[in-house]
């Protein structure tokens, strides 16, 4: 008697898997990695490897600790690479490892692991690092400093003691705030300016964005709403440059790779739009009225927290659903009867 497999329908499945999605995100980040190595030197690559490696190891160790199945999947690598891109190239390695611990263990695994965390691990780790190691986290290396022949900073000491070193290049936004000369459009677009090493090159990030949209990993609505809101705000505000606001700081990497994180953003298209606009507004407020550098990070974190409520108000209307009108009155009537 031959045996047959019995299972609930459907009996065929699409060939898309979570691992494929995560691998595509990694591929989309490769252009930015290449550009960052070109701009900031080989240390950008080393820092990325440290972050990816420690994120994967933390994930495995934690899962072993709580006796969950240890599966090799690319999602911690995505977190690690994204976190690395948010760091200055001069950051000491041990600080990066601390960031990875916060991202993977504290933010992701303590809340239940893949898909269960309410805040974006990379963003939260970046904020924690910025608040803990402010000096090192806001020490921006000059682009192409490695070509000048000078040692690419022995980080901690030099960053703290030298303060405004000749090598340190402020971010364009900081320059603008200080009323100094900002980089030109070409330098902004290509990423030849100071900043976290993965976030400066608009070109590379936009290539990644196009790849993700074409492979249907992300929907273009969140990034467009986010960047669009910031651009519109900068356009309307007196004395602000739209191009400067769009291409500097963490706006592009945040909008493309972090505001589109599945676990921490709304699921419906309407919700994604609300999320993007909300992120844009908070970014504008922080950039215009605050001295803090982390506008995009805080915007995404705050909207992450609101995601639950955005999901609630934007849930799609089922086809043919009859809305319960005057729910308030109905409840009262029922209450009276009881």
């Amino acid at each position: 008697m031959s045996k047959f497999i019995v299972e609930p329908s459907p009996h065929i499945r699409g060939n898309n898997t979570t691992d494929k999605i995560m691998t595509r995100v990694l591929i989309a980040l490769v252009p930015a990695l290449v550009m960052s190595v070109y701009i900031f030197g080989i240390r950008a690559l080393y820092l990325s490897i440290v972050c990816v490696g420690s994120c994967v190891i933390f994930e495995m160790l934690y899962r072993r600790l709580i006796k969950k199945e240890t599966e090799i999947d690319p999602s911690p690598a995505v977190t690690g690479l994204l976190l690395a891109f948010c760091l200055p190239v001069t950051l000491p390695y041990y600080m990066a490892v601390i960031g990875c611990f916060i991202a993977i263990v504290v933010v992701k695994q303590l809340f239940g692991g893949l898909g269960q965390n309410f805040a974006n691990p990379a963003i939260t780790a970046r904020i924690v690092l910025t608040l803990s190691f402010t000096a090192q986290m806001t020490y921006w290396a000059e682009p192409f400093h490695y070509r000048t022949g000078q040692e690419a900073l022995d980080t901690v000491s030099s960053a703290t003691s030298h303060g405004a070193d000749a090598l340190s290049g402020a971010t364009p936004l900081a320059l603008a705030e200080a009323g100094e000369q900002v980089p030109g459009l070409w330098d902004l677009f290509m990423g030849f300016h100071g900043g976290s090493f993965g976030e400066t090159s608009g070109l590379a990030l936009i290539i990644g964005f196009i790849f993700l949209v074409l492979t249907k990993v992300i929907r273009s609505v969140t990034p467009l709403a986010f960047v669009g809101t910031v651009a519109l705000g900068a356009l309307l505000a007196p004395g602000e440059s739209v191009i400067l606001h769009v291409f500097s700081g963490g706006l592009l990497i945040g909008a493309i790779f972090m505001a589109t994180d599945y676990a921490t953003t709304p699921v419906s298209i309407a919700g994604k739009f609300v999320f993007g606009v909300g992120c844009g507004l908070i970014t504008l407020v922080i950039r215009f009225f605050s001295d803090m550098p982390e506008g995009v990070s805080f915007a995404i974190l705050i909207m992450n927290i609101l995601t639950f409520y955005i999901d609630k108000i934007t849930f799609p209307k089922p086809f043919g659903m009859v809305r319960e009108s005057f729910v308030f009155f109905k409840k009262n009537k029922e209450g009276k009867k009881e």
Binding site: R13, T18, I21, D73, G113, G115, V267, P316, F319, G320
Partner: peptide
């Protein structure tokens, strides 16, 4: 091909696949 169920990553693809607009 046999697949093993893994954690939901909230990608929202099921919502958009549903012709009844359900979640």
């Amino acid at each position: 091909p046999e697949y093993r169920a893994t954690s939901c990553i909230r990608c929202g693809k099921c919502l958009r696949a549903c012709s009844m607009n359900l979640m």
